[in-house]
Design a binder for these strands. Structure first.
Lengths: 157, 157
DNA sequence: ATCAAAATCACCCTAAAGGATGAGCCTTAT
DNA sequence: ATAAGGCTCATCCTTTAGGGTGATTTTGAT
C-alpha cells in the first residue's frame, strides 16, 4: 500500500525534495554571500521570481498535452500477381488475432458461420464474435467486404 | 465541476500539500537546531508557495494548450496491376445474362442486395431473383462462394 | 504473481440473405 | 403471331448474418 503510493507519486515527491534543496541553497546563499545587507524586499523579489519560474516549469511539466490525431492516408500498391505474400505489417497494424484471421480465411472460402464453427471446433456464437471483431478492425459491414478488403491487404490469398 | 478540477490537477494539489509539509519540516528543523530569526523564512516560504501558485496559474492561463499532433499513417491498400482478362467462354457456357453478371460484379464489391438494387435502379426482389439465378448457374449456395468462383472463372476482376 | 489480452460461449433481437413460386412485360427469333 | 428468353416485381417463408452485451476461462507478458 505505502510502497505503491510512493511508486505512483514518485515524481511528485521528487519535486518536493528538489524544492527543499532549493530552499536550503537559498539559505546557504543568504548566509555566505549576500550577508543580509540587502533589504527584505530584494530577497522576496528573488524568491518570488524564482518560484514563479518553478511554478511555470511545474505546470508545463505536469500539464498533459492534448493529443490531436491526424490521419494521413498513404497509398500502398499491392501486386496480387504473386503467389501471395502475407502482409505482416497490415496484420500487426490492425491488431488482428490469429483466430480472427482464421475466421476471415474460412469466410473467404465461402463458408457459412456454422461451417466455420464446425471446422474450427468452436460454437457458432464464437465464430460470430470473431467475425464481428474482424468487421470492426477492417472497418467493414459485411463478410463480402471483409473478404474483399482482406485480399487487397494481403491478409489472405 | 469542482470534482473534475480536483481530478485533473490532482498532482499539482498533491505537490502543494507536500511542499507545505516540507516547509513545516524545514521550520521545525530550524527551530530545533539553528534557532535563528524566524520571520524571514516564514515570509520566504509563504512567498515561495504563493508565487509557485502564480507561476502555475500563469503557465496554465497564458500558454496555449499544448497540442501534440500525432500523425497516423493509415495505409490504403490499392490493388494496382491486375491483368483481368474477361472469360467470354465461361460466360456463354454458363448461360449467364448481362444483368446477372452485373449483380455478381456488385456482389463482389461487397454491396448488399439493397445497395445493388439502388445502384441498378431496380427493386430488391429483382436483385434477389438475379442472385438466385447466379447461384444456380455457378452451382453455389452463398454470395461469398459466388464471388470466389466468379473470380476464379474470370467472370469478374 | 498479477494484470491484460485473447478466446470462448450465451442470449436476445434485428437485418439481410436465400428458396420457392407465380406473374406481367419487352425484345427477338422463328 | 407466337414462342422463348430475359428482365422485372411480388409474396411467403426459412435460414443466416450481424449488433449488442455480458461472462468465464486461457494464455501471455511483465
Amino acid at each position: 500500500m505505502t510502497a505503491t503510493f510512493i511508486a505512483r507519486h514518485k515524481q511528485t515527491i521528487l519535486y518536493g525534495i528538489l524544492l527543499a534543496l532549493l530552499l536550503f541553497l537559498l539559505k546557504w546563499l543568504e548566509l555566505r554571500l549576500l550577508i543580509i545587507h540587502h533589504s527584505f524586499e530584494i530577497y522576496a523579489g528573488i524568491i518570488a521570481l524564482l518560484f514563479t519560474g518553478v511554478g511555470i516549469w511545474l505546470a508545463l511539466k505536469l500539464s498533459r498535452p492534448k493529443v490531436q490525431t491526424m490521419v494521413i492516408e498513404k497509398e500502398v500498391y499491392i501486386n496480387n500477381f504473386s503467389p501471395f505474400t502475407f502482409n505482416e505489417g497490415a496484420l500487426s497494424q490492425l491488431n488482428m488475432s490469429r483466430r480472427e484471421l482464421d475466421v476471415l480465411q474460412l469466410m473467404a472460402n465461402g463458408l457459412s458461420n456454422q461451417e466455420i464453427a464446425d471446422q474450427l471446433f468452436v460454437s457458432l456464437n464464437t465464430v460470430k464474435t470473431h467475425s464481428a471483431r474482424v468487421f470492426e478492425k477492417l472497418e467493414v459491414k459485411r463478410r463480402t467486404q471483409a473478404v474483399e478488403k482482406g485480399k487487397r491487404m494481403g491478409l489472405i490469398p
